[in-house]
Design a protein around this nucleic acid. Structure first.
Length: 351
DNA sequence: CCCCCCCC
């Protein structure tokens, strides 16, 4: 091996006691930090470094030094020297380490081409769903989670602080079929799409890093952030184990339970009390419309229906007198319909 | 160090 190897420090050794650290690490994640309060001005380029013992540390390159390090690429392994060590942040902490690294103009970064196997490609600090409650509404750390996508809402465009953002709600389930909702923004809303969710060949299992954890309507709700990274169906033990665990427990649920599960999934988006107030059968709705005629245009109905066909209507301008309109009141749809359908049709074929 | 991760 190269003669320097015995002098590399592990990332968990790093502290403020000395300043001649010499590390060999993979840039496992990299992202730009933008000032969302101004015109998305670049503030820094941030990295998560990973060493051969699966230790992680957050490193940050301030805007003024970014040009010195233009060649750094996510995924590559580097030898890094002459950097600063400061206390890790107390808010929105990226990884669990007492310290973080700061690159300066004098920091030396050298690409190491050899031995890519030496360091894992990724390492996550996955938080089980039942522990998320301890992190909620604190913003001390950003949180990595793993789960199967079991619900996805259509893409929504909303305006926040004068900026137009794409947003989706997705629902993840863990190995115990515990479910949690995540709001994903912009590139993640585009990346997590129906193609991923309705692909029958593989359960969509994602890892999303650096999310915020909040309580909304007494339930936990995660949100992607600017420092988030998304990994779909990674070939790592955590993903494989979850997939295996979900497949094993699926056999213990009969089809009725599966149906109930998917119904509860779409209902869980709204407060259950609200649902029972609003819930009408299709017949009740039709009766209501028939008797009330055009007296009221302001009644809201939530009608669980299955769309059996889609008709293309003439241009909207020709029907502008129509007062009725369909609104997505249950924006999350089960993403596992694909499996269940194929499971049912297989059962039918056998019968 | 700033930015702080947006909405219902």
């Amino acid at each position: 091996m190269d003669r320097q190897s015995q002098r590399y420090n592990l990332l968990d050794e790093i502290d403020t006691e000395k300043d001649n650290w010499n590390i060999r690490a993979r840039v496992t994640r990299m992202w730009e930090v933008l000032n969302i309060k101004t015109n998305n001005e670049l503030m820094s380029v941030d990295l998560v470094l990973l060493d051969e013992k699966d230790n992680l540390i957050h490193a940050s390159i301030r805007k003024s030094f970014v040009n010195h390090f233009r060649d750094i690429q996510e995924g590559k392994i580097y030898r890094i020297k002459y950097f600063g060590v400061v206390k890790n942040k107390d808010a929105y902490r990226i990884v669990n380490h007492k310290y973080m690294i700061r690159f300066y103009a004098t920091t030396s970064v050298k690409l190491l081409e050899t031995n890519d196997e030496l360091i894992a490609k990724q390492k996550f600090e996955l938080v089980p769903f039942d522990e998320l409650k301890y992190l909620a509404d604190k913003n001390t750390t950003l949180t990595d989670v793993i789960g199967e996508i079991v619900g996805i809402s259509p893409m929504e465009k909303i305006e926040v602080r004068g900026k137009k953002l794409n947003k989706r709600l997705i629902e993840l389930q863990d190995n115990r079929r515990e479910k949690i909702r995540i709001t994903v923004w912009d590139k993640f809303a585009e990346a997590i799409n129906e193609d991923i969710c309705f692909d029958n060949s593989v359960r969509p299992i994602i890892i999303i890093t650096s999310t915020t954890v909040k309580t909304y309507m007494r339930k936990l709700s995660l949100s992607s952030t600017n420092s988030s990274k998304l990994y779909v169906n990674l070939d790592i033990p955590e993903v494989i184990e979850l997939r295996k665990s979900l497949e094993e427990t699926e056999f213990s649920l009969d089809e009725k339970e599966k149906k109930i599960e998917s119904l509860q999934l779409s209902r869980s988006i709204v407060d259950p009390n609200e649902i029972s107030k609003m819930k009408r059968t299709l017949l009740e709705t039709l009766t209501f419309i028939k008797t009330e005629k055009e007296q009221s245009h302001s009644s809201d109905f939530l009608v669980p229906v299955e769309i059996s066909d889609v008709l293309l209507l003439p241009s909207p301008s020709s029907s502008s007198h129509c007062q009725k309109r369909a609104t997505a009141v249950t924006p999350i749809v089960p993403a596992t319909l694909g499996y269940q359908r194929s499971a049912y049709s297989t059962a039918k074929e056998k019968a």
